[in-house]
């Protein structure tokens, strides 16, 4: 099963509904790829930018953590950027899924406390299961053998070269 399908299946198991307006939940790889989304759908081009920015912000925050001395406090940090109704909330990767960041994007929510409640449930759920595990016979061979110049030329044909 694909990572996206696995994540969506797990999202549906959280016993708190995610509305399809005003709230988007993203699962983002540490490299900035959006693995899955739920709630209000973002367009494909927006998703790529969101993934890069949120992963970048998260990575910078992780680097800032190194300047804190209290080891225990470091592990429990969340990242918020919000006002009373709208904003972003990022959850740190869990031990079981160190390469996945969960991000909430919410707008015009009358009860932002609800977002934190859902975030807590997401965190608890994904603390107990491993999403990105090696499958048996994971493909290690080269995906594209013997790529030709023509094939690469076609990719860049829009640039006239």
């Amino acid at each position: 099963m694909s990572v996206e399908k696995t994540l969506l299946e797990h999202f549906s198991k959280i016993d708190f509904p995610i509305p399809d307006k005003g709230l988007t939940l993203l699962a983002i790889s540490a490299e900035g790829q959006v693995l899955a989304q739920m709630g209000e759908e973002k367009k494909s081009n927006e998703l790529q930018s969101l993934g890069a920015l949120l992963a970048g912000v998260w990575q910078a925050s992780e680097a800032l953590k190194d300047f804190m001395s209290d080891e225990q406090e470091k592990d429990d940090l969340k990242l918020n950027f919000q006002n009373a109704h709208s904003g972003y909330l990022l959850l740190p990767p869990s031990e079981k899924n160190p390469k996945i960041i969960f991000a909430f994007i919410f707008e015009n929510q009358t009860n932002p406390g609800k977002i934190k409640h859902i975030a807590g449930k997401i965190r608890d759920h994904f603390n107990s299961i491993e999403i990105l595990k090696k499958e048996n016979g994971e493909k290690e061979e080269f995906l594209f053998k013997n790529i030709t110049e023509d094939e690469v030329d076609k990719l860049f044909s829009f640039a006239g070269i």
């Binding site: 994971e138 493909k139 061979e141 080269f142 995906l143 594209f144 690469v152 030329d153 860049f156």
Partner: peptide, 15 residues
């Protein structure tokens, strides 16, 4: 274009 070709040739199957 050159780096893209090298990246694609180096790509292994993943998730």
């Amino acid at each position: 274009k050159e780096v893209s070709k090298l990246v694609l040739m180096n790509l292994k199957g993943g998730l």
